[in-house]
């Protein structure tokens, strides 16, 4: 966990593209908010592994949003129920119901559909928020952050040694 956080900080502090980190946050958010054992998460995992997004950022976002999901499930259930019961969409659902792939995606499960729709809708917003945060972190927070006494103290801790080791390995 410490190593993962150190890698994320290194990515944030390095010259890695901010979009790569922001996309990682988005993929992690989708996987975290939706039920883990869903077919679409296989696709998310595939994207996270095969595209050049920051994998540590993806994992941390997934862990963070998995915690959030416990609170979010009732909302997801409500959204899913509303969508699946919507008259206008009945034709779509009925046709999807006969499609084995759609059934394997569990589109007719209220929380799965609700959380996925929310996560997809929230993804562009979260992408730009993440991008904005990363850019501003690099511009303003990083220099100020390094000067903080708490960070100075942190530099003498185990976390810092891990961070340095990761940095050294990557640099080497």
């Amino acid at each position: 966990m410490l190593g993962m956080l150190a890698r994320l900080l290194k990515a944030l502090n390095s010259e890695s593209g901010p979009w790569a980190i922001a996309w990682a946050f988005v993929l992690g958010m989708i996987m975290g908010l939706t039920p883990l054992f869903s077919l679409h998460n296989l696709v998310i995992l595939f994207l996270a592994m095969s595209l050049r997004v920051n994998f540590s950022g993806f994992l941390l976002a997934w862990i963070f949003f998995s915690g959030v999901a416990y609170l979010f499930d009732p909302v997801a259930d409500w959204i899913g129920e509303a969508l699946l019961q919507a008259d206008a969409l009945q034709g779509l659902w009925v046709s999807l119901y006969d499609n084995p792939l759609a059934r394997l995606l569990q589109f007719n499960h209220t929380i799965t559909l609700g959380s996925l729709v929310f996560a997809l809708a929230f993804a562009p917003v979260w992408l730009f928020i993440s991008y904005y945060l990363i850019i501003n972190y690099r511009k303003r927070v990083q220099a100020w952050f390094v000067k903080l006494k708490v960070v100075q103290a942190l530099k003498g801790s185990k976390f810092w040694s891990v961070y340095q080791r990761v940095n050294g390995l990557r640099g080497g």
Partner: peptide, 13 residues
């Protein structure tokens, strides 16, 4: 149960 969600049946056939 309530917060485990539910599967809705759309089998019109």
């Amino acid at each position: 149960t309530r917060w485990e969600g539910r599967h809705i049946d759309f089998d019109r056939g």
